[in-house]
C-alpha cells in the first residue's frame, strides 16, 4: 500500500512540475518564486546547518567562526563563502532572502533585521536528537530544499538505530571533562548522545542539569570507568586548559580508558554529532 501512495504522490508532483514548466516564462520576472532563496547565517551552528542543506550558490555569507576548524565541522565549505561578523550593516549589503540566526545570539541584530522586513529564522540550541531533526527541517524549509531535510533526518534515524544495535553489553560509568573542569548533565546534547550510545553519564545520574563544574576531587571520587575529554583550543594558553594537565587527571587517564571528542561535535547539534556517539561506543568496547 505505501508504495502505491508514493507513486501517486510522485505523479502529482510531476503534474506540478509540468505546470511549473508551463508557467515558467511568466515567472522569470519573479525569479524569487522559482529560484531557491538566497541565504545568510550569523551563528556558527546555524551556518553549519545552512552549509549542509543549501546549494553553495544560494549562500551569500556565513559567520566567521564557521570557517574555523576548531569551531566548525564545515570549515572548508564555510571558507569558500563571504564571512560575516553578524552585524546588520553587513547583512544589508548581502541582502539575503532569508537570515538564519541563533535564538539566543545577536539579539539586537535580529530585532533590527526583523524591523527592516527580513525573513529571520531563529534556531533554538539543540539538546536532543529530536531537536537536531527539528532544526534540520526548519533550515531545509527556509532554504527551499525540504527534501534534503527529510534525507538527513532519515540518515540520523538510521544512524540512531545502528547505535542502538551496538550498545555496549555493560554500560560504563562515564565522566566528561571539558576544559576548566566543566562537565555535562541532563538536558544537554552531549548527554543525549551518551544515552544514545548506551553509556552512563555519572554527572547526569547525580542530578546535574545542563552543565556545571566538576572539581578534581569529585572527579576522582566518581571512579569513572570511561573518561571522555573534549579539548578546545589546546594550543592557546588558558586556565581552563591547564586543568586538563592536572597530575591527578593525568594519572586517571593512564589508569582508565580515555577518549577524546573534538569540541565541534558537541558545540552544535548536527547530523555529524551522532558520529561522536559511535566514537563513545568504540571507546566503551575497548
Amino acid at each position: 500500500m505505501p508504495p502505491l501512495q508514493r507513486s501517486t504522490r510522485t505523479a502529482s508532483a510531476r503534474v506540478l512540475t509540468l505546470a511549473a514548466a508551463l508557467c515558467a516564462p511568466a515567472l522569470v520576472s519573479h525569479s524569487a518564486l522559482a529560484a531557491p532563496p538566497t541565504v545568510a547565517s550569523i551563528n556558527v551552528c546555524a551556518d553549519q546547518l545552512v552549509l549542509a542543506l543549501a546549494d553553495p550558490q544560494q549562500i551569500l555569507s556565513v559567520s566567521w567562526l564557521s570557517a574555523d576548524p576548531e569551531e566548525s565541522l564545515f570549515a572548508s565549505a564555510a571558507s569558500r563563502h563571504a564571512l560575516n561578523y553578524g552585524t546588520a550593516e553587513e547583512l544589508l549589503r548581502f541582502h539575503p532572502d532569508v537570515v538564519i540566526a541563533g535564538a539566543y545570539t545577536n539579539a539586537f541584530t535580529r530585532a533590527l533585521l526583523i524591523r527592516l522586513g527580513y525573513h529571520v529564522v531563529e534556531l533554538m540550541p539543540e539538546d536532543t536528537v529530536a531537536e537536531i531533526e527539528n532544526n534540520l527541517r526548519k533550515v531545509a524549509d527556509a532554504v527551499g530544499h525540504p527534501e534534503r531535510g527529510d534525507q538527513l533526518v532519515a540518515a540520523i534515524r538510521a544512524e540512531s538505530r545502528e547505535l542502538d544495535a551496538h550498545r555496549p553489553a555493560h554500560a560504563p560509568a562515564t565522566v566528561v571533562v571539558r576544559p576548566g573542569g566543566f562537565t555535562v548533565g541532563k538536558h544537554s546534547l552531549a548527554d543525549s548522545l551518551m544515552t544514545l550510545a548506551g553509556i552512563r553519564n555519572v554527572a547526569a545520574e547525580q542530578g546535574l542539569d545542563r552543565w556545571g563544574s566538576l572539581s578534581m576531587e569529585t572527579l576522582l571520587r566518581s571512579a569513572p570507568e570511561l573518561l571522555v575529554l573534549t579539548g578546545y583550543r589546546l594550543a592557546q594558553p588558558s586556565l581552563a586548559n591547564m586543568m586538563l594537565e592536572h597530575p591527578a587527571l593525568t594519572r586517571l587517564r593512564t589508569e582508565h580508558p580515555t577518549t577524546t571528542i573534538p569540541a565541534a561535535y558537541w558545540a552544535c547539534g548536527l547530523p555529524q554529532s551522532l558520529d561522536s556517539a559511535a566514537l563513545l561506543q568504540t571507546a566503551a568496547a575497548r
Binding site: T87, A88, N106, F108, T109, A111, L112, R115
Partner: peptide
C-alpha cells in the same frame, strides 16, 4: 557596553 545594531526603537 555597545551601540552595535541598535535601532530607533
Amino acid at each position: 557596553g555597545s551601540l552595535a545594531d541598535r535601532s530607533l526603537v
